[in-house]
Nucleic acid binder design. Structure first.
Lengths: 257, 257
DNA sequence: TCCTTTCATTCCATAATACGGAATGATGTT
DNA sequence: AACATCATTCCGTATTATGGAATGAAAGGA
């Protein structure tokens, strides 16, 4: 577990600033992290010279810098699931005429790595990079079918099941049952479990070894995403695209169980 | 100039990996950076525990991790030019029916921070986060009008003027003249200077102090972006939106010189 | 205007921390 | 099986990061 203290501290600073939309002062960081002001100052300088941090021109507060974005853009460029899935996402968004997402799993959370909006609803990047909990989102639950039973309990301990709406899953029993359903039917429904008024359908993507590596989803307001439309129109199209992507990744079995 | 060595080295590792789409081995990093393998190993561990680096499952090579994306998403959330300009970009893309970009300046380069495509040309994020040189792009030249003469020379020294096409500006004289034109007319044209077949028109965004803080552009293939269309249709619309955004940021003078 | 407070910044002596060389372990190649 | 090429661990050394104190700058109050 040998770690480099100063690097860890720098990362903590970055992560702290990520949660402070208005930035923070040296004094604040010093108090918050229990380090001397001189230490914080020196670390901030280092990060600032490289552009990972910048100072707000008005307030003088320190906040995240452009270089963070540059790294992310390279990260996305290196992600091959993204390029593999791109065409399928486009197709899916055309078929479904709703917003479509691609997510991967990271540390018991779903991370949105791509998004295609139907028509010209041109809100961009609104979600890419964002994280979501697993128990209350379509993609989250789809990703969960790759977990072992022991991992479910880990998840319950580490993250818990916060209640967002009156349909949110709030305990392990419900989750187990739900995962059973999803495995049986090959897709997951988010029945307004995270946000009232939003229904979502999601499906897992498997790689050559049958491992769950990603998930795709279609989401929209319940007015448009009626139960009948989901069942008759959307289930087929999302399953089709999830299978196609899985096949591109080398998955060979039919997704029918 | 006091800097933290280990942090600088970590950042260098991240930046090196950003340019290695397939990742790199410890040996390779060690050779490339002139550091002991044990040092690289320790730094990598630290970055990996936090998720900024991950190992390719097949090759074992180290590559950028998801956490980079997470930071970027927070960075973008904090950037207010982006939210300020969003509606105007949409409008512009509708008026122009071509792809529209928003860029900021960082370290003598243009960084794309938002993009709106017209219609359903759903290639997304293809540019956001990317960097471009200043001398050969519309947005770059638009951003350059905020430079002092001394900074032009700096730019020339630091970056040079690589030639991409036969219209690329390749020396300081040409650049000075071009900047004069842009200041006079309030917009910049990229006449296939970076990529053959792509014509682009760009305009600077100014803040309350009259400082150039960003630039917007319309780009497309010369077939559609004819000179007459640019002059009669696009110049007016891009100037209108750039002025509106500048006004939102507190800029008060008319953009007419 | 001057005093007070609250920041950020610089300086410096201390030792804790990061360092790299060498040894070991793991993998894969001929 | 021996070799080559990786990654990983260990450990003594001194370089490097540290935090306290002193200084400087800026903002707010009287």
């Amino acid at each position: 577990m040998a770690q480099v203290q100063s690097v860890e501290r720098s990362l903590s600073i970055l992560e702290y600033l990520a949660d402070e939309p208005n930035g923070a002062s040296i004094a604040q960081l010093s108090a918050e992290m229990g380090l001397a002001k001189s230490t914080i100052h020196r670390l901030l300088q280092t990060l600032m010279v490289r552009g990972y941090i910048q100072q707000d021109e008005q307030t003088g507060y320190y906040q995240l810098g452009v270089q963070c974005l540059t790294l992310a853009s390279h990260f996305l460029g290196q992600l091959d699931i993204r390029s593999v899935a791109k065409e399928n996402l486009k197709q899916l968004s055309q078929d479904a005429e709703e917003v479509v997402h691609l997510c991967i799993l990271d540390q018991d959370e779903a991370v949105y790595i791509d998004k295609v909006e139907s028509k010209q609803t041109l809100r961009m990047y609104s979600q890419v990079g964002k994280r979501a909990m697993l128990h209350c989102t379509g993609v989250g639950k789809a990703l969960l079918i790759g977990y072992e039973a022991s991992q479910w309990e880990q998840l319950a301990e580490n993250k818990g099941f916060p209640k967002f709406t009156d349909t949110t899953i709030t305990n392990l029993e419900q989750l187990k049952e739900e995962i059973g359903n999803i495995q049986a039917q090959g897709y997951a429904i988010d029945e307004q479990e995270h946000e009232k008024g939003i229904r979502c359908i999601a499906a897992p993507i498997l790689d050559a070894e049958g491992k769950v590596v990603a998930a795709i989803s279609i989401a929209g307001p319940i007015e448009r995403m009626t139960k009948s439309r989901v069942q008759t129109d959307l289930v087929p199209v999302i399953r089709k695209q999830s299978q196609l992507i899985s096949q591109k990744l080398g998955y060979r079995k039919g997704v029918e169980k």
